[in-house]
Amino acid sequence: MQGMMIARAGELLENGTVTRVLGWQTGEFVYDITPAVFESAEELEKGFVYNSFCGNNLSKYLIQASRKEGKILVFLKPCDTYSFNQLIKEHRIVRENVYIIGIPCDGKTDGEFLKAKGVKGILGIREEGDNFVVDTLYGEKTIAREDALPERCRNCKSKKHMVYDELMGEEGEVLDSHRFDMVEKLEAMTPDERFAFWRSQLSRCIRCNACRNVCPACSCEKCVFDNPQSGIAQKAAADSFEENMFHIIRAFHVAGRCTDCGECSRVCPQNIPLHLLNRKFIKDIDTFYGEYQAGEDTESRAPLTNYTQEDVEPSIVYTRGGNN
């Protein structure tokens, strides 16, 4: 796949369709891949990579990149196309300046995730059938691909691209995932248990803002938490209340716009399962307003910015007993 991508990107640069290519660049190790812009066939040859570690969702970079002169080629995995569409819907990306090649994805992992599985001192990784064979400082380790994938890929919602100008490889299907299983477990807890669960998770937060800054739905020019004029700017949570509020406000702000791309949980250095907050909102929106998937299209009105007579009344909170 990587070879085909480099060749095609080279062609599109050569024939003037695009002036730049947004993709992934190799690093020091097999897994530390960085999003990068390439401007020539030589640069692509030298550093362009596409493998099981290219987890970064490139869509958000297009907010800036599509405002520069000339057209940019971007490679989008199925789940990245949802983010792209959502950004188009929010008028954040200049569509004419982007050429999208949809690429297939069979799950992305990362070095940190493999280490959490007990692998130490990663020197290299080979993919052999359904296994990752990891060469380490302390000998070789084999991990089944299935076990080496993080939650978002094990519960992939779709292998189908929602938008593209050109497709590479085979198109997949929207999948029946189990992504709400854990949300259901949380709903089944008592309020006290649930509070304890979230406190134990959120109390680890160091407020590095990685979750917010990587999030394609967090595209405000200036976040209230960064704005000294907002009156609620904060760099560190002074207490547990503020710690909770940052996450709850963020979850509310992206409600109905979060495509469940899973980037927030991927980047969190403290391993906080942030996707569970967002999935709770997605699940509730599905229940109250009918099935809705953000980023599926660019035109429809989102449930939370629309009005229909069937909309739930606020009293739903009491009907549900206020417990979940």
């Binding site: 999003p35 990068a36 812009v37 970064n56 803002n209 990685a210 917010r212 800054n213 980047v267």
Partner: peptide, 9 residues
């Protein structure tokens, strides 16, 4: 710095 998110991690 092109891809840096400015996160602070």
């Amino acid at each position: 710095s092109e891809a840096c998110l400015g996160c602070g991690t």
